[in-house]
Amino acid sequence: MRALRLVVVLWLSTVFAMAADIQSYTVRLQAAADHSGLAAASVALTGCTPGTLALPLGFPSPENVRLEEAPAGVRLEPGPRNGMTLLRFHFPEGMPSQATLRFSFGLKQVFLETRLAPGEKSTLPEGSRIFRHAFVNTQEAPIGIYRLEFLFPEGLRAQAIREQLPRPKKSEVGPRVLLSKLEDRQAAILQFAGLHQGDDTSMALELVPSQRSFGWLIVGLLIGGLYLVKFKDLVAKKLA
């Protein structure tokens, strides 16, 4: 039995051998109006050796995963793993030490789909959407910087950041999730430096329509105007 275990461990170590150091791992996800998404990822590597790099992808069911740019001979083989996706990059003999891998993929539905059971109270107003992303570094090599840039669909903006983990350390400048503008679109950026094996990071955002309700304008002007009429005596009497 012990011998069998040893064989399995040795086999796994060859299959998932650490074939590179990951300097940075950036995913830019653009959500479309129909709530589908198109992502472009870029991974900067150093110390590459022939073998397999197993890179986790923080999305459960990507479609059309395609290698866009890589040194010659590199193969990409996506596969599911524990409800997430594992991308296996096979590096050939003669792989350059430094390399940048670029790949793309699509997502059918970017937002969480919430279905209410009969009689269940809704916790979100009409038109609100929740986007949640979690990433776990399941492979051996540490990741220098993991960054997810999420570009919102046109017409939506962030109501609030509902989750941003882990909490930034004292030595980190800036928040874990930063709301910003990218390519002239509202966006949120999740960033975490120094992810070791087993470290995870996540963000959840609530998005709402950018257009505010004009009900506020009507009610506000009505009450303000009414006050000016009904409380005129505050100044009129005293000055008289």
């Binding site: 903006r157 109501q159 709301l179 910003s180 503008k181 509202q186 709402v208 950018s210 505010r212 506020w216």
Partner: peptide, 13 residues
């Protein structure tokens, strides 16, 4: 303030 166009980095809340 409520109806100002959304600024980069500022949530609706």
């Amino acid at each position: 303030i409520y109806f100002l166009p959304a600024g980069a980095g500022l949530s609706a809340a």
